[in-house]
């Protein structure tokens, strides 16, 4: 979180500040704590307690790992979990391999006729393409060439989806590295590629790592393309979460477990890189 220099911060404990504090913490409680506790409690309840508003373990209900055991034993969960890991890690790796050199060039070289800023805009504009518009033709093509329901197709598509974010974030990381260090390396006989790999890349490593984690989260959460390009073998975790039988009011314990499994990896990755996340989502408009 950015450093806060509030408009009221010099005036001590004014009524406005009290109001702001109470309102803010109350909002966080209602927004995050209540649904969070509800979900976690549901995941550890027995089927007979799931349909009741019981919150406190041991006092109000006897916690159990039954829902977890049942869900983790489900072969389709294991398959989709494995697929999700393969697709997200694969797409992230590819996007970093392709995106870092591009971002470095956009940060350092003079490009013509299209300048660095405008080339960056070409990347960023991809974020406005509605996923259905891309995914419906891709699914029709994939069905024709035998790539339907294959992990490879999903990796290729997800790589393209996350590349703009990777380029945007790593470019600003390279811009923060002073170019003098690479110039010194060049004078000592380093090639351009050598200066990039040995000097710029290690110095920009935090930004590159952040880009990787954000790309991982995006690919992990992606639903529309995964829905249209897969049927069974290559299904990813969000599809498994959504594809299940009618669950309104039924089996709420297992719903909670599935969602927790789907939600936790990107949460863990995202909390570490929050400020980069904001920069990526606003197309670089806000530094965060």
């Amino acid at each position: 979180m950015a450093q806060q220099t509030g408009s009221f911060s010099h005036t001590g404990l004014t009524p406005q500040r009290w109001l702001a504090a109470v309102g803010f913490y109350l909002a966080v409680g209602v927004w995050i704590i209540v649904p969070g506790c509800w979900t976690v409690a549901q995941a550890f309840k027995q089927p007979r307690d799931v349909h009741s508003l019981r919150w406190i373990p041991w006092l109000e209900y006897q916690p159990t790992l039954a829902s977890w055991r049942e869900t983790l034993a489900d072969p389709q969960l294991r398959r989709t979990l494995r697929n999700s890991v393969i697709v997200s890690v694969g797409a992230t790796t590819l996007a970093l391999l392709l995106g870092c050199p591009a971002a470095y060039a956009l940060a350092r070289f003079r490009l013509r006729p299209l300048g660095a800023e405008d080339t960056l805009l070409v990347f960023l504009s991809q974020r406005f393409l509605p996923p259905v518009v891309v995914a419906v033709p891709l699914a029709l093509m994939a069905q024709r060439v035998g790539l339907y329901d294959r992990l490879v197709a999903l990796i290729v598509v997800h790589t393209a989806f996350v590349l703009p974010l990777v380029v945007l974030i790593t470019r600003s990381a390279f811009l923060d590295v002073p170019p003098e260090l690479e110039q010194a390396a060049r004078l000592d006989g380093c090639t351009m590629v050598g200066a990039f790999v040995r000097v710029a890349l290690p110095l920009a490593a935090p930004g590159v790592a952040a880009a990787g984690l954000i790309a991982f989260g995006f690919s992990w959460n992606e639903f529309v393309a995964a829905l249209m390009l897969t049927q069974y073998r290559a299904q990813t975790l969000p599809l498994f979460v959504a594809s299940s039988e009618d669950t309104w009011g039924l089996d709420m314990g297992r719903v909670a477990v599935r969602c927790l499994i789907a939600v936790l990896p990107p949460l863990a990755a995202g909390v570490a890189v929050q400020r980069f996340f904001i920069r990526g989502l606003t197309l670089g408009a806000v530094k965060g």
Partner: peptide, 14 residues
Amino acid sequence: LMAPVAVAYLATTV
């Protein structure tokens, strides 16, 4: 940071 479809699915219990 959460998958929208997981959030929606979780919301069925809410």
